[in-house]
Amino acid sequence: MGKSSKDKRDLYYRKAKEQGWRARSAFKLLQLNERFDLFSDIERVVDLCAAPGSWSQVLSRELFQKQDKKNAKIVSVDLQPMVPIEGVTTIQADITHPKTLQEILNVFGGEPADFVCSDGAPDVTGLHDLDEYIQAQLILAALQLTTCILKPGGKFVAKVFRGRDIDLLYAQLSYLFEQVICAKPRSSRGTSLEAFIVCLGYKPRAGWQPKLELNKSTEEFFRGSGIGKAENMQYLELPEDERLIAKFIACGDINDVDSDATYTLDTLDKIQSLNPVQLPTAPPYKRALELKRLGQANSKRV
């Protein structure tokens, strides 16, 4: 979480620092849980694209502290390094690699997961069509691992960018889950296309065995499952019992603070500046700053 003037007036940002969350996104998962009761009857959880770890923090506190589930197991996966969280197994790896799947299964003792979530998103370019496409591909990559590890009846939650082609993703997910809901937490800014797809009741496709393999595209992975884009486009008339229109639901207390509003600090003399809950572990600009301090940074453009 940065220290820009807008962040200082964002109450969710300030509340996150006060309550010890690594990022304001923690409130998004908390508000999703308030609406859908995601944390009930779960013990094995996978948090994909987890860094810096705010969702893993939420899962740890909810399962270990509030529900006192001593046998619960939480695995966080990300390509970026992440500072450890008590009770959470951290794996620095690619979510599309078969070895990552095996590492998670080893932590779970070979048992399937009850809940898989992903708050991952690409670095946005500002080109909405491109950003939506890349985000959809990230969701499908997370879904690949999910179909390999989630138990029947399990839950899946992921961040989406709502665009004109989002209906295709809803349709694909409806083949795999009994309920598919698009949810917008109050802590998610209304000016953002961001929302969260909540998928409940995993139902594996009959006769299809998902298997992660290197150098296989998402299209190839889901081929034969009956949900792939090519197959959906080939048969324009989908079976009535397989179609689903995703509901759009707002989450969070209507009386809670507005995530799009900024609030003035009336008592500046009483404000105490708080350090970040978790400093960056390995920011990509770290080496450049070190060279700049030593006066060795090369400003010439090649």
Rank of each mutant, 00 (worst) to 15 (best):
L138P: 01
I254S: 09
I134L: 12
E213Q: 02
E242Q: 15
G226S: 06
I166V: 15
L200R: 13
L236I: 15
S225W: 00
G252M: 07
A136Q: 10
Q234K: 12
I245N: 14
C182H: 04
C199Y: 03
F221V: 06
P204W: 02
V180S: 04
S174E: 00
A183F: 14
I254V: 09
E220P: 00
G207Y: 07
V198D: 12
A142E: 03
A158M: 06
L143H: 04
R186I: 00
P185Y: 01
R243G: 01
N215E: 10
P185M: 06
Y202G: 07
R186S: 02
A171P: 07
A230E: 15
A141K: 08
T218P: 00
V257I: 10
E219L: 06
A206N: 13
L169C: 03
V160Y: 03
I166A: 14
G190L: 09
F161H: 11
G163V: 06
D253Q: 10
K184D: 06
K229N: 05
L200D: 08
L176I: 03
L238P: 12
L214S: 02
Q209K: 13
L193R: 14
A142N: 06
F248L: 13
R162F: 08
A230H: 11
E242A: 13
F196G: 04
K211N: 07
A195T: 05
K155P: 02
I181K: 08
D256M: 00
E220A: 11
L168P: 00
A136C: 13
G224Q: 08
L143S: 01
A206F: 09
E194W: 02
Q135G: 10
N255I: 00
I166N: 11
L130T: 15
L173Q: 03
Q234P: 01
K184S: 09
K216C: 05
P210A: 05
G153I: 10
L138V: 01
R243D: 07
F196P: 03
